[in-house]
Design a protein around this nucleic acid. Sequence first.
RNA 1: GCAGAGGUACCCGAGUUGGUCAAAGGGGCCGGACUUAAGCUCCGGUGCAUAGUGCUUCGCAGGUUCAAAUCCUGCCCUCUGCACCA
Length: 951
Amino acid sequence: MDYDAQEIETRWQKAWADSKSFEAEVDHSREKFYCLEMFPYPSGHMHMGHVRNYSIGDAMARFHRLMGRNVLYPMGYDSFGMPAENAAKKEGGHPHHVTHRNISSIREDQERMGYSYDWRRFLATSDVDYYKWNQEIFLTLNESGLVERRTAPVNWCIDCDTVLANEQVKNNRCWRCGLEVVQRDMSQWFLRMTDYSDELLDELDNISFPENVKAMQRNWIGRSHGAHIDFKVNGSESVIGAFTTRPDTIFGVTFLTLSPEHELCEELCAGTEWEGAWRDLLDECTRMSEFERINMLKEKKGVFLGRYAINPLSGEEVPIYAGNFVVASYGTGAVMAVPGHDQRDFDFASRYGLEIRRVLIASPGDDPEAELSSAFDGYGPMVNSAMDDFDGLSGDHAKTAVIQELEKNGAGHGSVQYRLKDWLLSRQRFWGTPIPMIHCESCGIVPVPSEDLPVELPLDVKFTEDQKGNPLESHDFFVNTICPECGDPATRETDTMDTFYDSSWYFMRFCDAGNDQSPFDREAVDYWMEGGVDLYIGGIEHAVMHLLYARFFTKATRDHLMNEVGEPFGRLVCQGMLNAPAPFCIDCNTEYHVDHFEADCPSCGSPLSSRSAKMSKSLGNTVSPEEMISKYGADTVRLFILFGANPEAGMDWSDSALEGNHRQMFAIIEAFQSVQSMDESPSEIDEWLMARIRSNQSTWKEAMMDVSLREGVMISHFEMISDWNWYRRRGGANRSTANDFLRAWIPMLAPATPHIAEEFWNIMGNEALLAEHVVEATETRSGDTHVLAKERYLRNVISSARNLRSMAEKHSEGGISRVVIQTSAQWKSDLARESLRLDSEGFDFKKDGQSHVQSLPIFQNEAMRGEIFQTWMALTVGSKKKRGRIHTWPEGDISLIGSELNEAEVLSSNSDFLAEALDVKHVSVYSVGEGEDVAGKARVAFPLEPGIAFL
RNA sequence: GCAGAGGUACCCGAGUUGGUCAAAGGGGCCGGACUUAAGCUCCGGUGCAUAGUGCUUCGCAGGUUCAAAUCCUGCCCUCUGCACCA
């Protein structure tokens, strides 16, 4: 068969589409499987990262269909966002057109790969029939009190001309363009995600996310338990609230530190000699980017504010400082400083000559007055407490006692702090969902009534290169409206929503994508989303943002009774990076663009080596999927991707491995073709092949269920073929066995290489499509291990004979022409069976083994005693390195021995095959004693390990 | 610094409820068969030693055990995330 991948693949893609093979509907009588990939931003063409993502998903979707599940496998596009807007500016078009052009292009690429999506459920978030539901849900969230408008300093990217969420700022740089972020005060829309902080955190324990993702989310939410403590300012009405996780160190407070931005700073030092220094510090801190600030913070700096605060428990007065290391946005922006037990405070106190006091000791009995050379930040018994009844308490007991005392005095309380912030939703951009709110001079801010939705983005906007700001602001028709409450002229909100909003519920929309009455129907969502999306596949880069927002959203809509589940994703798989070689300078630890291959390092001049690096445009080490598909076909690319590494593991692109996989496709075809020439000629090996099929199928299913695709593919695309080849070498040529083999094998090929599988299926004469086929459940049979073990016995004999042969050659003068195989003496096999029987009865070989063997009748033969004893030991005890055989024989070998397998008969009935495999003219087989003891090999012969002599 | 994941033969990569592990599978390389010829396909080999049960290997160093790639301790290194977060 010629392998014209292009022809075969496009033909079957059309057939699948024509027969609507992948269209799924709610069906309560069937088990569902919701397989989803993180939908892409349509940036033109599909790249290899996409190919990997979707090849994993498609394999799993196809596998679960084969297993008879009702599979929902949709695809859509996360199509709002800045790149389209920027592209529109560049070409003077509209982002809507740019987006749709890109969508058709990437969709074409996806279709060419043969992914089995239910395309009826297609959605693009920038289409009004999607984003109108964004607005509808926004009104719902507003009703639930989860929407808030407040002025806040926001992260602003000048280049992108937009606001950024905290998550979108990395190292004080915009995640998208890399420019440094500045702070700006603005009136903004927020979603109160922090209302769900605890649930978002606690539920992590119950969901099947990879550990690193859980760790990142826990980090991000950053819950810490402690106490809020109020320090009165001496001679003032003001109170400084400080959060601490270590209330047990309250008596070690020797000063307070405020962040320079803290509102009390000015009040405390205004008009005093201290004011100037504080202003300098404040200027220095605000002027610097956060990034510089962190670097600078290696040096702790602070100024005295001229006032004192009162420790609410001890009544002690402590100085108040402003310090550059205190973060304004965390907690209250004020820290109770305990230099004895916090390293930062210790450094600060050392520098400014403040008291360092020990109030904890490491373990009971330590000297409470021992000097501290660095902060002790562990837990231990309290000492030197300024109040009675505290000394000696440690850890949680100490914390609780202090908190209780604070509460008694009305000076504080137990408190929980989170790092998680509310979700800043507003973006001052055009290409996003308009926030459905109206500003009215008399009524204030009024939500757009649900019946007036959608608020549509105008299509008649001209985008130009030098445009500034948000074009919506200058679009009169969009901006000017009427207040729904008073009817007076009013203006629309021109902010649009962060695009993460769009992707926070699209998985629910997919369950009911055609619904034009509501975002989704509850019945459909409850069916498909039960237990969450069964398999969600995507990149690790969404670990905190998208995955956290989506979890929040699902809980919020759940609480609005729109859906049952609270956790959207049952099992999450984060696919590993796709790497390819890039030039690398060892000295500079830097990767360069592939143009620099064979060249010297541009910065230090030393010769560049090569290193595997994440495929990226900037390094130019990308591979075009289209090119690979046109060269090798989609099946080869899919096979390479899936066999190259397990989904979670990183993987290196390799041209030679890809070619290897292409060759494997030919091997698969070759194997398939060889099946065609079979007659009715049953033989013993048929039984073996059938047993192999059953065993392969069961391990394959297990691997696939577990998303261990590499292992699955190894069985379906490699093991099955080598078994088939072995079958043929062993003389297998039976048509009905071959048919059984194909019926089992071809479906196994479908998840990774669906086109060739469908082609085979068709050639076999099946009327129905393989894509719609459900495999019948098969189970391994009780006799299988025995059958398999028998064949493995033969293979093992061949393999050890081969090893011996190469050595025998060195000792033979005239070359080797025959082999004599002596199988184990009967008494050895009897002994083996005896010891296995004893072992199963719990016999103590160490204690009673020796006397037992001596009591055997065979032991009467004095000449044999030595060998008997040796055999017995090898069977039951073993040597230093090798344990007794009865303990190491696999189940199948035990079965062979138990069934009194006639080894000599097995081998001699296969003597022609042995002769061929060992490349000798003549093979003689007999059990020890029934023929001449050639070369003294009788002694070596052991059950399942015959003595072999080459002559 | 904290947290998570890792370090397996030339390369990639399985194996980590201790024994069936000199360690699957693939790539590469070597040899053989087939073929007009192969860059196709098939078969064999690929730590060292050796007419077979031997030696040395799974980041390094110790330990537990009759027995360790697998368990424990310490150390080194790589990747990822967080970070003067109170």
